[in-house]
């Protein structure tokens, strides 16, 4: 009876974590679609690292460890970091990649300084840096699942509301500007949505791996379709798949951290898609090449044989 109880409780925790990971995968997959299509795959990496000083400052200012306050701090810092990247690229000749690298590493460094400052004040209950970097999926509670679901849902609904504007921004920014849409405002909107997705994921998979949750499902989805709507849907599905399977695999044996396992599952989905996807995939490509070669051979044979037949 006792063991059964524990088993039940374990299953309940596992279910909560799995649902949380699935929701997170859906949200980050769907929003990551835009980042991947705009060739800003690594923006997620930058935002998630840039969030650290925000968490530290939120803690220093309020002295509270309430998730909502820390998440708000993380979001503000991540958002400021992105604005800095955007203005450096717009105003100087420094390219996107260098601006990203500088913001990512120096914001993180500043966060580290603040972190050691907090540590020195001897506050035992400080937010752990390990948790920030690698996440702790096991600590996801029902309350967190609700937060991820509601905030992530709102973010996805916003993309539906601005569907045609964002689509235009992604595929033809110059045309969007010429039609009178403010591309900078749209850019900031899209970035803010990304910030939301990332901040939601920090707790579960951590800063270092959050970028993979944005990139991998979207890249996998890209292999199967050329339509934005289908790609977003597929990316959300792949994200959920990676979240659930990663949670199950990591729970099957001791000492396998959940975050990295989810990332590896997402990577497997990408690998599968790149090789096997219809129309795009490597295997399909190889088959098409061979079919073409065979057809060409038949045609060439026909060409060379015909005159001989005529002579007969």
């Amino acid at each position: 009876m006792e063991t059964l109880n524990i088993l039940n409780r374990l299953d309940y925790t596992l279910m909560i974590v799995a649902v949380g990971a699935a929701l997170l995968g859906t949200v980050s997959g769907a929003l990551g679609t835009y980042a991947v299509l705009r060739r800003q795959s690594l923006l997620g990496d930058a935002i998630s690292h840039a969030a650290l000083p925000g968490i530290a400052i939120a803690f220093l200012l309020t002295g509270s460890k309430a998730p909502l306050i820390l998440v708000l701090g993380a979001a503000i810092a991540g958002w400021l970091g992105t604005l800095l990247i955007m203005s450096v690229v717009r105003l100087t000749r420094i390219k996107y990649d260098s601006a990203l690298g500088i913001v990512l590493s120096t914001f993180f460094g500043f966060g580290l300084v603040l972190h050691t400052l907090i540590q020195r004040t001897g506050n035992a209950n400080q937010a752990g840096l390990d948790t920030f970097l690698f996440g702790q999926a096991a600590t996801i509670l029902a309350r967190d699942v609700w937060t991820i679901g509601i905030l992530g849902g709102v973010a996805i609904i916003v993309t539906f509301v601005f569907w045609k504007e964002l689509k235009l921004l992604v595929f033809d920014e110059g045309f969007a500007a010429s039609l009178g849409f403010s591309t900078r405002a749209l850019d900031i909107l899209l970035t803010s949505l990304l910030v939301i997705a990332i901040v939601l994921g920090l707790q579960a998979v951590g800063a270092v791996l959050m970028s993979a949750m944005l990139v991998a499902p979207a890249v996998a989805a890209r292999q199967w379709t050329n339509r934005l709507s289908v790609m977003m849907l597929l990316a959300g599905g792949f994200g959920a798949l990676a979240g659930v399977s990663g949670t199950i695999v990591s729970s099957s044996a001791a000492r396998i951290p959940t975050g990295p396992t989810i990332v590896l599952c997402a990577t497997v989905v990408v690998g599968f898609s790149i090789v096997f996807a219809a129309n795009h995939g490597l295997l399909w490509d190889r088959m098409r090449q061979q079919r073409n070669r065979r057809n060409l051979k038949v045609e060439m044979d026909g060409l060379f044989k015909q005159p001989q037949q005529g002579n007969d």
């Binding site: 795959s41 970028s211 993979a212 990139v215 975050g259």
Partner: peptide, 13 residues
């Protein structure tokens, strides 16, 4: 960019 974003998280994981 996506190739970088796929490779290093996987190896890091």
């Amino acid at each position: 960019d996506a190739a970088i974003g796929l490779t290093f998280p996987a190896l890091f994981s």
